[in-house]
Computed example of a mutant assay.
Amino acid sequence: MADADNSNTPDLDLDNDTPSKDGWQEHAKTLREENKQWRLKFREAESKLKAAEVAVESTKTEFGEKLTKAEVAANERLVRSELKAEALKAGMVDLDGLKLADLSGVKLGADGSVEGAEALMAALKEAKPYLFKQPQSSSSNPGGAPKADEGKAKSASSMSAEEYAKAKAEALRKARNG
């Protein structure tokens, strides 16, 4: 029997319940055409997938390179800032003197600290002492820093009667001798 709803099945010969030769050939042709369409769609999807994979890999490589460059730049800035701090601590007069330094011995440690900065400053001090402040050999105040109360006048109300009399006599003597 022929099924009216299913157009993909071949017509049956009602006398012997076998499909006609023309029906099978037509059905096979239809299936081949459908198969061809699916293969074309698959190949198209496969080529799009490969193109997308290539684009992803390209983008991954590009951003990997950008990330590496950014990390290197950040590490260089960190090393330069740490060297500036170390240079100021060592007494460097002009930080442009760091441009003269050989930074090959300075490395960024795993913990983010700069290794070799102190040794670099010591070598720079020895090789180019004019870049650093010279320690003063003489002092204008060899006695050390004055005490906090020294040189400060006491108020009359905080003095004892004896201290007040001495301070008053000293002030009058200074005023007369002038």
Rank of each mutant, 00 (worst) to 15 (best):
M1F: 15
A2W: 15
D3C: 14
D5R: 15
D5M: 15
P10W: 15
L12M: 15
D13G: 07
D15A: 15
D17I: 11
P19L: 08
S20E: 07
D22S: 13
G23S: 12
Q25H: 10
R32W: 10
R32M: 13
R32P: 00
R32F: 14
E34K: 13
W38R: 12
L40M: 09
F42I: 03
E46A: 06
S47M: 11
L49I: 02
L49P: 01
K50W: 06
A51H: 06
A51L: 11
V54D: 12
E57K: 14
K60T: 07
T61Y: 10
T61S: 13
T61P: 00
E62M: 10
E62S: 06
K66E: 10
T68D: 14
A70Q: 09
E71K: 11
E71F: 09
V72R: 11
A73G: 03
A73I: 03
V79K: 13
E82V: 01
E86I: 00
A87F: 11
L88T: 06
A90N: 08
G91F: 02
G91C: 03
D96I: 03
L98P: 01
K99R: 13
L100M: 09
L100Q: 11
D102N: 14
L103M: 09
S104P: 03
S104G: 06
G105Y: 08
K107V: 10
K107D: 00
K107W: 01
K107Q: 06
L108S: 01
G112L: 07
A117I: 02
A117Y: 04
A119E: 14
M121D: 05
K125D: 02
A127F: 09
Y130C: 05
L131D: 03
F132R: 00
K133C: 05
Q134S: 12
P135M: 10
S137V: 04
S138Q: 12
S138D: 05
S139K: 10
G144L: 04
P146G: 05
K147I: 02
K147V: 05
D149F: 13
G151W: 03
K152Y: 13
K152A: 12
S157Y: 10
M159H: 07
A161W: 13
A165N: 05
A169L: 03
A169S: 04
E170K: 07
K174D: 01
N177M: 06
